[in-house]
Design a binder for these strands. Structure first.
Lengths: 232, 232
DNA sequence: TAAGGGTTGTGATTTGAATCACCTAACTGC
DNA sequence: GCAGTTAGGTGATTCAAATCACAACCCTTA
């Protein structure tokens, strides 16, 4: 009788397009999903694993990454609450494309792939929502390509990333340009196709030029326009 | 009474997941789409344009690209028949993310965004197919990120692209590793985040090392394993 | 309080690839 | 045929960033 994790009562529901479906659909949805909790650093699934389930991220952040045979790691994005991990793999009927690893304690709702497909078949509004959710995922992946491939320099790619972060976070942290960046330089390097040392140097330069401020994990973008000029 | 372009009679229908819907749905679908033809080099829509329509690509190839303020161009992919251009933008209700330009004469079927959404609402099997189609688009975008960001060198990115092409084409051209590459070095550079000169040099080196063969637009991959080793 | 693992900061060196500059071919349409 | 245009090829030079090598910090945990 775990009611605290019911989707109907979820306070964040309105914020998340997929979760915000009709009550009747959501009631049914609630019965096919299992609430799960993870600590920090837990692996939810691995790249190449058979996709048996999708995972709705209720709270917390999850790092999505891919690794090359030679050991180079690319972090695609940090997923936030409301995202549906593994949805595209489940719909396409293929293995997970990425590895999902929590970066902080997370609550999720896990749904078996077949149960989800049956549910979508029977609830047209949910299946439209799923299509929209994947469209969002697509858009995000597309902007990732853009962010990586268009800037000519490493500083451009880093600047792009910082701008993205400050834009995403703006509603929460009222002060403009402030956001939390709980990643190491090594991880930022994996998100910008560069090296740890280069990230250190670029961030150092941006601080010296007063374009940004960093206190621990707190990042403040002081001059967004100047960053944009760098970012191309 | 244009019947030649009806989806029901389309011979390629079986090859394309989205088009291969139930006959009853397809009949309805046929009534909401307008067949259109384009010559080579025609622009179907532009990045940033309001997304008023989606376009089912019936035959021919279409170049999808994005441009930065500074004029750098990134070619995301060459879409082939069966793809639905602008679907993700239509579902997400936003502007087109890319510019679509034909690289050879193409036939398309254009559907007003609202007509498509209504159609999807009323035909659950079609909306599942749409979700799957976007999931495919997502996967493609994801591999694009991988191809661009994981290899450490320009030759790695080019090698990756050549491998992708030869894999895609393999069913058609029976000879292994043979495919058509109707792009200039400049365009290949835009797909691999490098420059025209570097593409020329890399392809030259690959030819000299007997990893590939090029005659006009015909590309043959002679040693896929060696290319993979380069590609990382 | 010391020890040890992970993270960050910096210099010196090397290198891949961008840039610049030009040149040859191939195809276009007068 | 020749001028014009676009694609492909190549060398010389420059430069950003990868690599290598350590020092200086955190943080935990012992």
């Amino acid at each position: 009788m775990e009611r605290s994790q019911g989707c109907l009562e979820c306070t964040a529901r309105g914020k998340h397009p997929f979760c915000n479906m009709e009550n009747s659909s959501l009631t049914k949805f609630d019965t096919i999903g299992t609430p799960v909790q993870f600590g920090s650093g837990a692996v939810i699934f691995r790249e190449g694993d058979h996709c048996g389930s999708v995972h709705v991220l209720c709270s917390g952040r999850v790092k999505l990454s891919a690794t090359s045979r030679e050991g180079r790691t690319l972090i695609l994005k940090i997923a936030r609450s409301g995202e549906i991990l593994g949805l595209s793999a489940a719909l396409a009927g293929q293995a997970y494309e990425v590895t999902a690893e929590t970066v902080e304690p997370c609550k999720l709702k896990t749904i078996r792939r077949q149960a989800l497909l049956d549910f979508l078949d029977r609830n047209p509004d949910a299946s439209m929502r799923a299509a929209r959710a994947v469209a969002q995922e697509y858009k995000a992946a597309f902007y990732e390509v853009r962010r990586l491939a268009l800037p000519a320099t490493a500083s451009g790619r880093v600047a792009n990333l910082l701008l993205d972060w400050s834009r995403e976070a703006s509603p929460e942290t009222s002060g403009k340009g402030r956001c939390m960046m709980p990643l190491t330089h090594e991880e930022i390097a994996s998100m910008t196709a560069t090296t740890r040392e280069t990230v250190t140097r670029v961030l150092g330069q941006l601080k010296r030029d007063n374009l940004i401020q960093i206190h621990g994990a707190a990042l403040t973008v002081l001059q967004p326009q100047a960053l944009e000029r760098l970012a191309v």
